[in-house]
Design a protein around this nucleic acid. Structure first.
Length: 466
RNA sequence: GGUGCCAUCGCCAAGUGGUAAGGCCGCAGCCUGCAAAGCUGCUAUCCCCAGUUCAAAUCUGGGUGGCACCUCCA
């Protein structure tokens, strides 16, 4: 399998630190607000990555953190007159629910900042002891970027001297402008923790490095983890700083492979709160089946920027519909456990840096070919068994088509409406039987008015939400 | 200003040296009482200019046009 390494800027073959195993760490959300489509995209990308790694036989350990210590959380709590814990628990819970709705599995490890303080203290101490960090008179602890000869090699950034001078003056206690906080002295009582360095809060970058050491790092490997992922905006300064902390406090570099997913824009504009409802995942879930959102957000390569708009989403839905129609066509039949050429090809496409587009092309070709054969006379027993196996594989590795196909096509329809439609279909079939096509067509118009389409098949009349 | 990314059919989108995947939309047809679904057929030489090469959407240089990061935002 091959992965595009966003630090080396090239596609590299994936060779794990430990044979047969893969460790993955992804920067998760700060739980102070509802998840937006960008969070969904990131979670989806790395959910797909773990599935593809597993399908390739790797024993995957996936960790994604929850940042529950942050100034924005404190601000929100104050605004809503709630406790920090009420805020973080509420948004952690909604994050989990919404991710589940788009088929994102929970990571194996989900560390929280509040539960990782000891690990952070240990890392700060190591950095101080080794001369990579210093405490100021005000009680803050900073990472000394000038002590790390490899600083900025990750993001390949060039320090701007003018800007640097300017910032040094505005923050006189820092040795270098680029130095970042490991521990922030806070004495207002809003949210402070006792530490060997005084009361305060950890710097944001620290938790990821500390959690990785605590949960994933292997003692004698050249890298702490195989893969580190996150949004494209995290490369600098977040990941640059994480990498610096880790290499200066341990005997290994942070990650062998770095993966960064592209951004989600809305109708051509960068997401901003002023754009309203489509911004949040929870609002999108009211309008569309979570799996449609999953399919749509995953249908473009993860490294490209993604432009979310209704037209393309509907186009994606139609594509997913085809998978479900084939499922419907083969509903209730037994599947083969034999390998198929399709499965091999699909995994091959996805193993090439998650080339979902190629995978979808293979899926569509498989569906068309299968339908074509099924349209001809014959039982096609083997084809049906293999096709079901193919569909199962699509579910496993891409998470598409996991629902009951009949329920999928009834998204958002209440029971009363469903019963009403069933009644009208019954009446229409009677009219059809009597060859009273005028009545049957009138009844069909009534059914269509519910926003569904209907289809007469040899197995009866079915309807689908449009 | 610094660093980097991108530009393929009306729309979405693969493809990193060998003569352009797939989907949506559209048109024609098969099927159907008529539809829907399904199936068949049809639709691009890859932003512009120059260069390298037997051969370039794919490499190099220049241009134009988008975009991202450089402010603890995925």
């Amino acid at each position: 399998m091959h992965i595009f390494d966003s630090v080396q800027k090239t596609k590299r073959e994936f060779i794990p630190l430990e044979e047969g195993k893969a460790s993955l760490y992804v920067c998760g959300p700060t739980v102070y607000d509802d998840a937006h489509l960008g969070h969904a995209k990131s979670a989806l990308v790395f959910d797909l990555l773990t599935r593809v790694l597993k399908a390739n036989g790797y024993d995957v350990t996936y960790a994604r953190n929850i940042t529950d210590i942050d100034d924005k959380i404190i601000k929100k709590a104050a605004e809503q007159n709630k406790t920090i814990k009420e805020i973080t628990e509420f948004y952690t819970d909604s994050f989990h629910k919404e991710m589940a709705a788009i088929g994102v599995a929970r990571p194996d490890i989900e560390p929280k900042a509040t539960e990782s303080l000891e690990a952070m203290f240990g890392m700060i101490q190591k950095l101080i002891d080794s001369g990579h960090a210093y405490a100021t008179a005000e009680g803050d602890v900073y990472f000394d970027t000038s002590s790390d000869s490899e600083y900025l090699t990750l993001s390949k950034r060039v320090q701007n001297e003018d800007e640097r001078q300017e910032r040094v003056e505005s923050s006189s206690l820092k040795k270098n402008a680029a130095d970042f906080a490991l521990w922030k002295s806070v004495k207002d009582g809003s949210l402070t923790y006792d530490s060997p360095f005084g009361a305060g809060r950890p710097g944001w970058h620290l938790e990821c490095s500390a959690m990785i050491e605590k949960h994933l790092a292997k003692p004698n490997a050249a890298f702490a983890v195989d893969i580190h992922g996150g949004g494209a905006d995290l490369l600098f300064p977040h990941h640059e700083n994480e990498a610096a902390q880790t290499r200066c406090s341990s005997n290994h570099a942070l990650a062998n492979y770095w993966m960064h997913n592209g951004f989600v824009n809305i109708d051509g504009e960068k997401m901003s709160k002023s754009l309203g409802n489509s911004f949040f995942l929870k609002d999108a879930l009211k309008e569309y089946d979570g799996e449609v959102l999953r399919f749509y957000l995953l249908s473009t390569h993860y490294r490209s920027n993604f432009n979310f708009n209704t037209e393309d989403l509907l186009s994606a839905k139609k594509r997913l519909d085809k998978i479900y129609r084939l499922k419907k066509r083969l509903f209730g039949l037994a599947e083969s456990s034999e390998p198929t050429a399709f499965k091999t090809e699909l995994l091959k496409a996805l193993s090439d840096d998650l080339n979902v587009s190629s995978a979808l092309a293979l899926i569509d070709e498989m569906i068309t070919k299968t339908n074509e054969t099924l349209d001809t006379a014959g039982k096609h027993k083997e084809l049906k068994r293999d096709t079901l196996a193919n569909l199962s594989f699509i579910e496993e590795v891409l998470g598409f088509g996991v629902k009951n196909p009949f329920e999928y096509f009834q998204f958002g329809m209440d029971e009363a409406t469903k019963e009403k439609i069933a009644e009208l279909i019954e009446k229409r079939n009677e009219a059809k039987k009597a060859k009273d096509f005028e009545s049957s067509d009138k009844l069909r118009d009534e059914i269509l008015a519910f926003g569904v389409s209907i289809m007469d098949t040899p197995n009866g009349t079915f309807w689908e939400k449009v």
